[in-house]
Amino acid sequence: MRTSTRIAGVLTGLTLALGGAALAAPAAHADVTACINQVERELQGGEAPDSIRMACYAGLTGDHEKCVSGLTAGGVTNGTAVTACRVSVT
């Protein structure tokens, strides 16, 4: 195998690997943001406190119960909490 062909293959592989990582990284952040936005709609324009942000992060990690209980403890209605936690993982 020629050296130039081998180098081209390695560079192509690196490009695909790094490009995939760059595309995947913003998605995780967007999920937490979607959860927070859902809660802020209920708060009618108010900014979500840190406790709400942490509860949404728990939903992102897959702990649905902790997410819902954290949001309801922060004053969010149960229906909105369930919806917000659901969007944090999708």
Rank of each mutant, 00 (worst) to 15 (best):
M54V: 12
T3V: 15
P49R: 11
Q38D: 10
T33W: 09
D50Y: 10
T90K: 13
Y57R: 10
L18E: 01
A30L: 07
L16S: 02
L71F: 02
E47Y: 08
T15C: 07
G74V: 07
A8F: 12
D50G: 09
P26V: 08
V87D: 03
G19Y: 00
A30S: 06
T83L: 10
T72W: 00
D63A: 02
A73V: 08
D63C: 02
T90R: 10
G20H: 05
T15Q: 04
V82K: 02
D31Q: 15
T80W: 00
A27I: 06
V39N: 04
T90W: 12
T12G: 14
M54R: 13
A81P: 07
L43Y: 11
N37M: 10
T3Y: 15
A28L: 08
T61L: 03
E47Q: 12
E42A: 05
G20M: 09
T3G: 10
S88W: 03
A34N: 09
C35A: 05
A24P: 07
T72P: 00
L16M: 10
C67A: 05
G59A: 03
T77E: 06
I36D: 01
V89C: 11
S88K: 02
R41D: 09
L23F: 09
V68L: 04
L23K: 06
E65A: 12
Q38E: 14
A84K: 01
R2E: 13
V87C: 09
V82M: 00
P49E: 11
D31A: 12
R2P: 06
A73L: 14
H29Q: 11
T80V: 05
V89L: 09
I36R: 10
S4A: 15
E47W: 05
M54K: 12
R2S: 14
T33A: 10
G59H: 00
T33L: 07
A30M: 09
V87A: 04
H29Y: 11
A17W: 01
A22M: 07
G75H: 15
A58Y: 03
G45K: 15
T3I: 14
Y57M: 06
T90C: 10
R53V: 10
T33F: 08
N78M: 08
A8N: 10
T90V: 15
V82F: 03
V82T: 05
T3C: 12
T80N: 02
V87S: 04
A22V: 03
T12H: 05
A28F: 04
M1V: 14
A28W: 03
L43W: 08
L14Q: 04
T12S: 14
T5E: 15
A73K: 09
D31W: 11
A55C: 06
A25W: 11
A55N: 01
V76G: 01
E42N: 06
A24T: 12
A17Q: 01
L43P: 12
T12V: 14
G79M: 03
E47L: 14
T15V: 11
A58R: 02
